[in-house]
Design a protein around this nucleic acid. Structure first.
Lengths: 351, 351
DNA sequence: TCGAGTATTGCATTCGAAGTCAAACGGCGT
DNA sequence: ACGCCGTTTGACTTCGAATGCAATACTCGA
C-alpha cells in the first residue's frame, strides 16, 4: 500500500508537470502520464511481450512526450544482465585500434564497454578490485593476470577472454596472434635475401610473455638457419626505447648488426630513426630492420617497415563472439584460438 | 514478512555453503555469515557511519571469507550516483592519449568510464540514445552535438563538458586549446624566416569546427602579414588524406607552395612523406611544413615537425575537475576554459 | 542499582524495471 | 444473454545496497 501511495504521488507529480526532482524519467512517470500500470510500460520494451496495439501506442506516446528511456542499470539488477563488459587494457596508447574494434563490435550487439586501463601506477590487482564492484557480464583482458586472479572469474561465473595472452596449462579462453610463427616468417624473409650475417634482437620488457614468445620464435628460426650467436637487448615497446636499444646492441657487440629484429613496430621505428639520424646509416642499405604488429605508422613511406600484421579485426571479432557466447551459455568450456599474422613486406630489408 | 523469509533463506543457503546460484556474494550473504543484519554490512562500507569496532571486525572477517564487494550498480540505484561517467569520442584512433589521460584521472577519483565511441557508421544520435540508458553521473564529449542534444543534458540535470569543442553562444562547459592562437604562432614562425612566399593550407573536414578555427586563425595571420592569396584544400585528418592533399594543392596552384600549413600532425606527416617520397622534394629545404596537436610521432626524428602541442594533461585535468565539480554541486554555471598550445619548434621549417 | 543519555543495531522502505500470477477483458459459439 | 477460453492488464514482489527511524545496548553519574 505504501508502494501504491508512492506511485500515485508520482502520478500526481508527473501529471502536474512537477519537475522538482528533475531527475530522469522513470517507468512510473510514463505509466502515470499514460494512465496505465508500470508493468505495462515495462512490457512495451520487452520484445515478444503480450501487449495490445492500443496499449503500446498509448505508452509509446507517453514515452515520446516524456523522453523516457529504460534505465539499463535498474533493469540489470533484476535480469542479472548489465549488458556491460569490462575491458582491461595494459596501456591505452599502445593499441588504440584494438579497443576501437572491440568497442565497435560490442556496441553493435547492444553491449557497452566499461574501461579499465592500467597506468604504470595502478597495478592489475587494484584494477580488478574495482572491476568486481561492477556487475559486468564478462571481461576481456589484454593484460596479464595471475592464475589466482583468473580463478576468481571462474568462481564467480564471469566469463573471461584474453586478448593476445596465452596461458599454457591454465584452462582459460584466449584469442592470440601466433607470435612465434610470425617471427619465423620474418626471420625467413631476412635470411632469404642471403645478405645478413649478423643479427640483433630488440626484445620487449623481460616480463612480457608476448615479447618472450616473439623472441623465442626468432631465435629458434635463426638457430635452424645456423645463426646461433645473436645478441638480445630489451626495450619497453616504446619508440624511445627502440632508439636506446641501438646503443645497447652496439655496446654488446662492438659493431652494428646488419639485421635487427624488433619485438614491435614502435621500437622498430625508433631503431630505424636512430640508425639513420644518429649513426648516419642507411636502412635497409646498411642495416635491415623488421618489426611486429602492423601498426598504421609502420606502413608510412618514411618507414615502410617489413612487419607481421596482427589481424586485429578478426581477433576482435573472435573475442567478442567468444565472450558473448559464454555469457549466453554458461556451459561452454574454455577455448584458445590462434590467428596467423600476415607478413607485410615493406622496404626495410636489404635485398 | 516475505522479505524476512527471503533473508533467512539466503542465510541458510550461505551458511550451508549452498553455491547453487554461484553468482556474486551479496550483503545478505555476508550478513548471514556474520550473524548480523544487512544494514550493518552496508554501514561498514560507509565512511563515517556509526559502527562499533567489534561489529566492523566481525563483518570484515565475513567479507574476507566470502570475498564480498559491494555492487556499485545496486548502490547507485539508491544513492543516485553511479560513479560512472560517459565519454563520447569521435574516433578512438585519433587521440588515444586523451582517453588515456581522462580515464586515469577519473579512476583515481573513484569514477569509471563508460565508453561511447563513434565509428563512421554510428552517428551521434544513436550513441546518445544508448547513453541515456545508463545512469551516468556526467559526460565528457569530444564530439559535436547539436544544441538540442546539448539541451537534453541540461533538462535531465546531467553535467556535460566538451573537450576541444567550443560552442559560441551556447551556455555549455568546455575545455579547449586555443586553435586560432596556435595557428597564428605557427604562421608567425613560418613568416619569421622570411623564406616563404607561397602558402598552402591543408584543412580538416569541412564540418569540423576545430579545423575551421585553425584555418581561420592561419588565414587571418597570413593576411596581416600581407599574404592573401592562399590555397586551401581539405583532408580528413588522416595520414593518407595528407598525402592526397599535396596532389590537390599542386592542381589548384599549378606549382608546389613553399610552405604548407596542416590542420593536424597526422596530415602533416602524410604531406611530408608525399613531398619527400613521391615528389622527391626536401622538407624543409624545398617546402616547409607545420602541423598541429603535438602527437608523439611528430617529434620522431623522421619528421621532427614544427607544431603546436595541445596541453593534453592540463586539459584532461581541467575536464575532470570541472565535470566532477558539477556533479557534486548542481548549481555551478557553465564555464569555458581555454588553454594555449605550446609551440614546438622542430626542423620542418626552412630557416 | 537505577535512569538518563548516547552509541549501535535492526527493521522496513526505497531506488527503477521486470517477472509472476491472478483478475479483468474480449470474442465467440450457442 | 450466457459461458468458455485465450488475451491483456495490473498488483505485488524481486534484484542489492543504503538509510530513516525505532529499538536495543551500552555508558556513566548519582
Amino acid at each position: 500500500m505504501a508502494k501504491t501511495k508512492q506511485v500515485s504521488n508520482k502520478a500526481v507529480e508527473a501529471e502536474q508537470g512537477n519537475d522538482a526532482h528533475r531527475g530522469r524519467v522513470t517507468s512510473y512517470d510514463v505509466a502515470a502520464h499514460a494512465g496505465v500500470s508500470q508493468s505495462a510500460v515495462s512490457r512495451c520494451f520487452k520484445p515478444g511481450a503480450s501487449v495490445s496495439k492500443k496499449m503500446r501506442d498509448r505508452v509509446m506516446k507517453a514515452v515520446e512526450e516524456l523522453g523516457y528511456r529504460p534505465n539499463a542499470i535498474a533493469r540489470g539488477l533484476i535480469t542479472r544482465r548489465s549488458n556491460m563488459v569490462g575491458v582491461i587494457v595494459s596501456n591505452l596508447n599502445f593499441y588504440p585500434e584494438v579497443l576501437s574494434e572491440l568497442n565497435k563490435r560490442f556496441i553493435s550487439r547492444g553491449v557497452h564497454v566499461l574501461l579499465f586501463a592500467l597506468d604504470q601506477e595502478s597495478d592489475v590487482g587494484s584494477i580488478l578490485e574495482q572491476l568486481w564492484q561492477y556487475p559486468v557480464d564478462g571481461v576481456v583482458a589484454a593484460a596479464h593476470l595471475t592464475p589466482e586472479q583468473i580463478a576468481l572469474f571462474d568462481e564467480r561465473g564471469v566469463p573471461l577472454v584474453f586478448y593476445n595472452r596465452a596461458y599454457q596449462d591454465v584452462p582459460v579462453s584466449s584469442v592470440c596472434c601466433d607470435q612465434s610463427e610470425g617471427e619465423r616468417m620474418l626471420v625467413s624473409q631476412l635470411a632469404g635475401s642471403g645478405k645478413h650475417k649478423d643479427f640483433g634482437i630488440i626484445a620487449g620488457p623481460r616480463d612480457s610473455v608476448v615479447s618472450m614468445q616473439r623472441t623465442e620464435g626468432a631465435l629458434a628460426r635463426l638457430k635452424e638457419l645456423g645463426f646461433d650467436q645473436v645478441n638480445v637487448v630489451s626495450g619497453d615497446y616504446t619508440y624511445e626505447s627502440g632508439r636506446r636499444a641501438i646503443g645497447k646492441l652496439l655496446e654488446a657487440r662492438g659493431e652494428m648488426p646488419d639485421a635487427i629484429i624488433c619485438a614491435n613496430d614502435m621500437m622498430a621505428m625508433g631503431c630505424m630513426d636512430e640508425l639513420r639520424f644518429k649513426h648516419d646509416l642507411d636502412v635497409p642499405g646498411d642495416v635491415s630492420v623488421v618489426g611486429f604488429d602492423g601498426v598504421k605508422a609502420a606502413a608510412w613511406a618514411s618507414f615502410n617497415l617489413t612487419t607481421v600484421t596482427q589481424p586485429v579485426e578478426s581477433m576482435a571479432e573472435a573475442v567478442v563472439t567468444m565472450l558473448l557466447d559464454r555469457i549466453d551459455n554458461d556451459g561452454l568450456p574454455p577455448e584458445k584460438r590462434t590467428f596467423s599474422g600476415v607478413l607485410r613486406s615493406g622496404g626495410s630489408i636489404r635485398q
